[in-house]
Computed example of a mutant assay.
Amino acid sequence: MEIVVVIPAVLLLLFLSIQVAMYSVARSVALNAAQEGLTAARGYNGSAAAGSARAQDFVTRAGGDLLTDTHVSVTRTATQATVTVTGSSLSLVPGLHWQIRQSATGPVERWIE
């Protein structure tokens, strides 16, 4: 009789632990995409469009299905660039949607005399 109670609890814990691992990987992909986009956006001849394209390309190549509904926003001023990647983690548990938001900020490369 106890096995009827234990097996569903064990399966729930198993699925929840896999879900946490998938969230962690998706979060890592989003952070790395933001850092890649920042590298392109903050370069001497870089632009916000170049940063956005590189970040989106990274998400497409590395994220696969783990990071869905992605959006990349890039802000570049004369002195600073910021890349933010948002999206959702793939869900094993129906109805559970974890949002991901990762940003990277750095100074813009420029020539100062």
Rank of each mutant, 00 (worst) to 15 (best):
S24R: 05
R76M: 06
S28R: 06
T105M: 06
S47P: 04
R110L: 13
S73I: 11
L90T: 07
L66Y: 08
L31F: 15
I3Y: 03
W111P: 00
E109Q: 11
V5I: 12
T39I: 15
L66R: 03
T68S: 13
H71S: 03
Y23Q: 00
W98V: 15
S73A: 11
D57Y: 09
R54D: 09
L12G: 04
Y23M: 07
S52F: 14
A49E: 14
V5Y: 02
G106E: 03
Q99K: 14
H97Q: 07
L13R: 01
A21K: 04
G87H: 14
E36G: 00
A78F: 12
I112R: 01
Y44P: 13
N45P: 00
G87R: 10
P107A: 14
H97T: 05
V29E: 11
L13T: 00
T82V: 11
R27L: 10
S52M: 11
I3R: 00
S28T: 00
A34G: 00
L14N: 06
S103Y: 12
A81S: 03
Q56R: 14
V25H: 08
V85Y: 10
Q99T: 11
F15K: 08
G64V: 02
I18Y: 07
A104M: 04
V83H: 04
G95M: 11
V72K: 04
G95P: 12
A49Y: 13
G87Y: 15
L96F: 15
S103V: 07
A53S: 15
L12C: 06
S28Q: 03
V10G: 10
S88E: 14
W98T: 15
R61H: 09
R54I: 13
A26M: 02
V29T: 08
Q19T: 02
V59H: 07
I100M: 09
T105P: 01
A26G: 01
A49F: 12
G95W: 13
G87P: 10
T79K: 10
A40P: 06
E36T: 04
T105Y: 10
L67F: 14
L14K: 02
V20M: 14
M1S: 06
M1A: 04
T82P: 05
L96T: 12
E109I: 11
T60P: 00
A104D: 07
T60W: 14
V20S: 11
T39M: 08
S28G: 01
T79Y: 15
V29F: 13
S103T: 07
Y44I: 15
L12S: 03
T77I: 04
E109W: 15
V93F: 15
T68M: 15
G87D: 01
Q19G: 01
F58V: 04
Y44V: 11
L31S: 02
Q99R: 15
R42F: 13
N45H: 06
R101P: 04
